[in-house]
Design a protein around this nucleic acid. Sequence first.
DNA 1: AGGGTGACTGCACAAGCTGCAATCACTACT
DNA 2: AGTAGTGATTGCAGCTTGTGCAGTCACCCT
Lengths: 193, 193
Amino acid sequence: MPRWKPDAVDRLQAAALELFGEQGFERTTVAEIAQRAGLTQRTFFNHFADKREVLFGLSSELQQEILREIAAGDDTLLPLDAVVRALGVAADRLFEDRRAAVARRHAVLAANPELQERELSKNAVLTEAIAAALNARGCDPETAFLAAGAAMVAQQVAFQKWTLPDEKRALRELLSDAVNSLRTTVSQPAGRS
Amino acid sequence: MPRWKPDAVDRLQAAALELFGEQGFERTTVAEIAQRAGLTQRTFFNHFADKREVLFGLSSELQQEILREIAAGDDTLLPLDAVVRALGVAADRLFEDRRAAVARRHAVLAANPELQERELSKNAVLTEAIAAALNARGCDPETAFLAAGAAMVAQQVAFQKWTLPDEKRALRELLSDAVNSLRTTVSQPAGRS
DNA sequence: AGGGTGACTGCACAAGCTGCAATCACTACT
DNA sequence: AGTAGTGATTGCAGCTTGTGCAGTCACCCT
């Protein structure tokens, strides 16, 4: 008989998502989460740097996937297209078949500004990492950051639509649409100075 | 003789900026800030929702300025141009003649992830507000958000250059350059499918 | 059998943050 | 002048987050 039940991290993440959903992030204490997971507060902080981090277990995996796809992409792609392709592949692999779970997490995030702050922070780190990956493919740093940032803006639009209740299209398609809209919005129409 | 010295908020902001610069954000306690300002911790929290907020006094003013300029802009401008013009005007009015103060604050922010998180949050709120202002001018919501987001990405690039030690150009010019680069980066070159 | 590893725990404590009640100069009204 | 109300500030008690440190003990390796 093992000394401890396995998968402590998973249990903490599951307990946190449940409790945040039931009573909200602020009204849930770390001690409560740990108790529901059959652990102690101290153990929670052994696994997560702070209370919010428990909701961001996937983001590291997501980032790795995206960076790998950028590095693996066709060399002839424009920087923006390279990022968009990578985001699409990552979305297919990590999001498309877990719509319900992603939606639950999204609902919790949407209800709490502190959690949104953390999400923005993760996105900013990801944007910088994408820019660095483009740079490694020969893109100059400024263009790399602009392409990364533009792709992330389109991604936000696409994700927001993807979470609407009756949306059936794949995130990848929505992203493609959003990028097309962005191209239209940003481009200078001919005939103006 | 008045019961309290005036300008409690200003004194707290000044004391905080000094202390954060001297010993860093994390190693400065709220009690210390309040003490240097001749007040108490409790009073600090009467004026600021949390410890970080003391560094973001200008952001509300900045946002108002930007939104006003968007609303006041020429109706024939493209959405992106309307935002860029407004950001340029706001930069001229609020940043250009306080380079030193802005740089000190920027140095403090750059040294601390928690503060950067808050800054990202402010930028996200600003982006949404800009999108709403564009929407009020007749722009559809998706285009509005894309234009707002694109402008903010360009703004980030421009601001980053503006804070380099030997940069002499105005933020407005750097922003204009960044937007041009963004247009190039995002646009589909002719002759590709 | 014995020693090392590593996940988990308990305890003490700093610091952020909040609710509540109290103080008291200033202001306005009578 | 007297009276009442306003509002910035304060003290205090308390909860929660987060950390440092030392201890336990099943498991693994030799």
